[in-house]
Each structure stands twice: as C-alpha cells, then as structure tokens.
Simulated scan of single mutants.
Amino acid sequence: MVFKFKIGFFTDVHGSEYSFKRSLNIAKARKVDFLIVSGGLMAKEILFVEDTGGKYFLNGKKVNLNNLNEEALRSGKYIVVDKKEVIEDIKSDKSKLEKVISEKVTEQMSRWVKIADEVFRLERIFWSAGHGDIPQLDSILKNFGGKLINENVINIEEIQIVSLGYGSPMGNSYREIPDSELYIKGKSLLKDADKERLIMNFHMPPLNTKLDNAKVGLRKSHVGSKAVLDLITEFQPLISLHGHVHESTSMDKIGETIALNPGSLYQLGDPSIVTFEVHKELKSFGSVSVSKYIIKNIEFVSTNPLDVV
C-alpha cells in the first residue's frame, strides 16, 4: 500500500509580487497539495518619490510613476510618494519610518493573501517569516487568515513540520540571534519530534554545504549556520528546507537527510520553487504492518510554460 502527497516550497521573494504570483502558479500547475511560503517575504528596499504637483522625482531624477510602480511589483520594492518635507520628516524619524514600513507590509500582505487564495487555496498554504521580516508580520498574516508555522510544530497528513525563521547576526535584520541561541531554540522545537516523519523548515541553510555558498566580495564563501547543520545531523529529518542564500539553489545530503534550497530570483520577478512528494509505503509481514516515509520526485522549477503573471 502506497500513500503520497506533494509539497511545494519557495522562499525569499522579498516583496516581488511577480515572483510570488508566478511561484503560486507553478505550484498550482504542478498539482501541489500543500505549499510552504517561507522567510524573506517583505521587500528589502523602500523608495521615496517626491511629488512636486503632478511631476515625480526619485533621487532628483524625474520618473514615470506608473512605470516605477510596475517595476517595484517586479523587483520587490515599496514606494512612498509625498511632498519633500514629509519625506525628509519620515527619513529623520525612526518611529515614523517603521510605521510606514509596517503600513506597506500590511497593504502588501492583504493583497498577497487574497492572491494566494485565488490562485491556490489559502487553507493549504503555510507561512513562515524569516529573519529579514518585521516582527509584526506574523500578526499581520494571521489577521488576514494566513496559517503561521514559524517557531512551531504542525502536522500535515501524518508528517510533522518544524519551522524556525531566525537567522545568524548580520547587523541589519529583524530576527537575528547568535548561532548558539538558534541551536537552543531549534532543539527545543525538535526535542519531541519523530524523525521518521519529520520535515525541518529552518530559514538558515546548514554550514559548509551546497546550500550556503554565497558571493562575498569577489569570492564565494559558506555563510550558513553550524547550529542548523548540527540539528540536522542530530535529528536526521526526512528532508530539510532552507533559504537565505539566494544564489545557492541546490540539493545536498547530510547523513540520510535531503537538504534543499530553492534559491531566489526575486529581483528579476522570476519564480524559484521546489516540489517533492512524500510517500508512505506500508509493508505487511504476516499480521504486522510497518510503514516508512520516503521523499521522491524532487523538482526545482524556475520557469514554466503555464507560469502566468
């Protein structure tokens, strides 16, 4: 007897509505049963456009506002249009800037939850914020009906998913903690997990693997987390899902665990999603039945003929 279902996973869309919608469309076209949308949801950049009475300027250069808005949807940026004095006031006041960012994130997530429900099915989508996402993002998504799984253990079709969005310190992100603390938080979540049916969804990739090779200056370096590597080695989940390092689209093995990073092409507005099947194989030995979960048919998808913006 064989039982199976398909999971889709994408991460680090960073405010790109094109990338988000196209990844959803691929999940639908690939007939995914459940979808995990992981960390790096909000945009990394905010553009302040000066309104001079019908003419618009960005950094002193005249711009077409319609074109700029369209490009922002593609590459993932928030746009604030206002008078020069208002913009300068926002920039000079941290609390006002944070309020504007929160409003922009709320506006976008309201739209994204509706899109997710229309393209896919909201009740089959699970959201997990990452270390670049504002702390309010969790409550924002919950208020719009999103199922949050960050810092939690959930069950999907007999499978356990353990999620953690914290990242190693970078000095400019909202949810960064020392690697030692990341290990403690992760172990606390995993301590009662059943590794025979476990999926780890930790935003940081494991250190010194194919998943964490980032370009730093003119060289490539491993920038992942030793804590995450140690936790995978210790708990040996069926599969572990990661992001953060956009250019490291890859699969690796850590012991018996398959580790995946779908990467990110958000700046181009392109999708980057990985799908896989969870099979439950039941074998009978006389009156005794033994079940085993297996990961099969892993597929990385960046483009697709059915991928429609």
Rank of each mutant, 00 (worst) to 15 (best):
M1S: 13
G8L: 13
G8R: 12
V13R: 04
H14D: 00
S16F: 09
S16I: 11
I26V: 13
I26C: 05
A27T: 07
L35Y: 14
G39E: 07
L41P: 04
M42G: 06
K55F: 15
Y56H: 10
F57K: 09
L58T: 07
N67H: 10
R74C: 07
K77L: 06
Y78P: 03
I79P: 02
V80R: 05
D89E: 15
I90G: 11
S92L: 09
S95M: 11
K96N: 12
V100P: 03
M109H: 03
W112K: 00
K114W: 01
D117Y: 04
L122N: 11
L122I: 13
I125V: 15
S139V: 09
F144D: 05
G146T: 00
I154D: 05
N155T: 14
S163T: 09
S168C: 08
P169Q: 14
S173F: 12
R175N: 15
I177R: 11
Y183I: 02
I184K: 15
L207M: 14
K210M: 12
L211V: 05
A214T: 03
A214S: 12
G224V: 03
Q236W: 05
Q236P: 02
L241E: 08
G255V: 06
T257I: 05
S264H: 04
G269H: 09
P271G: 11
F276K: 08
E277T: 13
K280F: 06
G286S: 00
G286H: 03
V288C: 02
V290Q: 02
I294K: 12
I295N: 01
I295Q: 01
N297V: 01
E299T: 08
T303H: 00
V308C: 00
